[in-house]
């Protein structure tokens, strides 16, 4: 096992079908509620005109990110950010490939510039006036773990708080059969290298092998955990929602797991 990266989780955000935010998620995890009606992700960090025209992936990522940043009490403008997605905006990829197959010169310029994998990072940094480093990464089914590792190393190496966002939307069209993504999910954390009262300490290390179990312990969340690559991070988010000491394994690459040791919330 590698030396551990020690971090404090200062903010958390989440959107899943029927779970609009972190506090609803906590209620579901603690058995006090079940997922309700599916609502549109509330991306209130984006200005209203951007909220209207932003693609689904951007709204979803910004909704989760906004919750985590608000909880952290930090200003988004100062936070470097790492956005990870297994498949990016599959609706736009499907549109692009369909259009290119039939009428390539009619490709929409707006859809093209929204098709870049870093569209959520771009919209987010523009909306929050963030000039810090922003990244957009991908790692297929290892995306949540690989993105978390990128965010955690950035926080420790640069000694500053970092925003981590994982998101994936449902697959569409011919592509959907390949990605097997059946629903949308986003989760976000503000990670800090500095201790703070109320923040949850996590120690992250690399371990050879993939023993990360499938879904976590909450049965109503099991279908969501299987719905897309980002949702494979649910066991970690469930553990954070419980706030009890626990160890979680999250796959970060082929034959490589993140081992996350979590302290109890004081």
């Amino acid at each position: 096992m590698s030396a551990a990266l020690t971090l404090w989780v200062k903010g958390m955000g989440l959107w899943a079908p029927g779970i609009a935010d972190w506090s609803q998620f906590c209620d579901v995890v603690r058995g006090n509620a079940t997922p309700g009606e599916v609502t549109r992700p509330l991306a209130d960090a984006l200005p209203p005109n951007e909220r209207r025209r932003a693609p689904e992936s951007v709204l979803l990522a910004a909704a989760a990110a906004g919750q985590a940043v608000t909880m952290s009490g930090r200003s988004a403008a100062d936070l470097p950010c790492v956005f990870v997605s297994g498949h990016g905006d599959q609706t736009i990829t499907d549109y692009m490939c369909e259009t290119l197959a039939t009428a390539p010169t009619e490709l929409s310029p707006i859809r093209f510039h929204n098709s870049v994998h870093n569209a959520p990072a771009g919209y987010w940094t523009i909306a929050t006036h963030c000039h810090a480093a922003s990244s957009a990464v991908s790692a297929a089914d290892f995306s949540f773990g690989a993105g978390l590792l990128e965010a955690a190393t950035l926080a420790v190496a640069d000694d500053r708080d970092v925003l981590f966002v994982a998101y994936d939307i449902a697959g569409t069209g011919l592509l959907g059969e390949m990605t097997r993504s059946t629903g949308a999910f986003a989760a976000s954390l503000v990670l800090s290298p500095h201790e703070e009262p109320g923040a949850i300490r996590v120690d992250v290390s690399l371990v050879a092998g993939n023993i990360a179990a499938g879904p976590g312990d909450v049965s109503v969340l099991a279908p969501i955990a299987r719905s897309n690559p980002s949702a494979l991070g649910l066991p970690l988010m469930e553990a954070l929602a419980r706030g009890a000491p626990q160890a979680v394994r999250i796959a970060a690459a082929g034959n490589l797991d993140l081992h996350v040791d979590m302290e109890s919330l004081r």
Binding site: S85, H117, S138, A139, L206, A253
Partner: peptide, 26 residues
Amino acid sequence: HTPHSLAGFVATAMELEGPCITVATA
């Protein structure tokens, strides 16, 4: 049919098992 096809392929072909990510910031 995934953005990670590139790094996934190279890690497989080179038989490497360390951290593996595809960065896609245009």
